[in-house]
Every structure is written in structure tokens, then in C-alpha cells.
Amino acid sequence: MSTEVWILAATAVLAVVAICAAVIAVRAVRRVGTIATQPVEDPATPATRDAPAPSADVIVHEAVVTSLPTELEPRVVEGRLVVPPTQHQVVQAALGRPGVRLSIALHGVTYALRAESRDRITALMRREFRRRRRERLQAGRRAVRSTRPTPPSDQWLGS
């Protein structure tokens, strides 16, 4: 088999996997959507079925006040215990997926290969090279000075 056939086969397999993932995602969204649209009676509010209906000339405005909990607490929903995830678990779930990790790695590589980044890295390397060269030259000068004795400082006065 030639290379083109292998690439075509790999592309076909990848397309099938992508379509399967899309179908699974759509089914999951539809299932969550039907659960979310079902009316839920709040046990804290009294039933309004017994209340008389307002007349046509009276407009009733009811404000629904929902207080969001400051901390998420475990609760029972439809007979199941729901424990909210920690922030660490949310981050791990979001960033731990292979596609996200690959995207982050590719972003880093493309950032490193940009002209600005290459110029900055080149400048840093040049600066480091010059600093090390300066240090080597200074160390060499110190070594030469330490091996040569210095003449006495009052020699220029004459005797």
C-alpha cells in the first residue's frame, strides 16, 4: 500500500471517530436538556393551587428570589447524591483531556517559533555569551596579575 492510501484510511477512521463523538455529545445534551426543562416544585414555597386566581383587572407581580449558596454542598437530586466537584477536579477535567493538552503544547510551540520570540531568545543568548566572555577575560587578567609581581609603588620617585 502506498502512503496516500494509508493517509486516506487514517483520515476515514478519524472522521468516523469524530462523527461518533458528535452523536454521543448530541444525545447527552438532549438528555440533559429534557431533565432541565422538567418543572420542579420547590418544597419551601406553599402550593398555589388552592389560591384564588387573580381577576383580570389586577396584575400580580411575583419576584422569584433565589439565593445562591456561597458554598456548594452535597444534595440529593432525583434520589441520587450529587457532590459538586472541587476546583482542582474541574481544572483537571478541563485541562487533562488529550485534545486540550495537545492544543496547549501546540500553542507553546507556535509561540516559541514566532519571529519576536526567536529574536528575544537570540538576544538573551547573545547577552549571556557576552557576559560569560567578559567573565573569562576578567578571570584571565586576574590570573596574569597574580603571577606577575608588581613593582614597588615608590620606584618612580628615584633613589
Rank of each mutant, 00 (worst) to 15 (best):
L102C: 02
G33A: 15
S153M: 03
L72R: 02
A44E: 11
R118G: 05
S103F: 11
A12V: 10
M125L: 15
V60W: 08
A63I: 07
A22L: 03
R118V: 12
I19G: 04
A123S: 14
A12S: 15
R145C: 06
E71F: 04
S67I: 10
V58K: 07
T45Y: 10
V32M: 05
A63L: 07
S55D: 04
H107P: 00
P46E: 13
T122G: 13
V65P: 01
V58A: 11
Q89W: 02
V40M: 10
L14M: 11
V13T: 09
A12F: 15
P54Q: 02
T86H: 04
V64K: 14
R133A: 14
V82G: 03
E135F: 07
P98R: 06
Q87G: 15
R75H: 10
A25M: 09
R120T: 08
H107C: 10
P54L: 11
G108E: 07
V77P: 00
L137K: 13
T48P: 01
V82I: 12
V90P: 00
P54K: 11
R141Q: 09
G140T: 03
R132Y: 02
V58Q: 08
V76Q: 02
T70G: 14
Y111L: 15
R27W: 00
R75I: 13
H88T: 11
Q89H: 09
P39T: 07
T34G: 03
V13C: 08
P151H: 00
Q87R: 15
P39I: 05
C20D: 06
D50I: 03
V82T: 06
P152G: 00
A105Y: 07
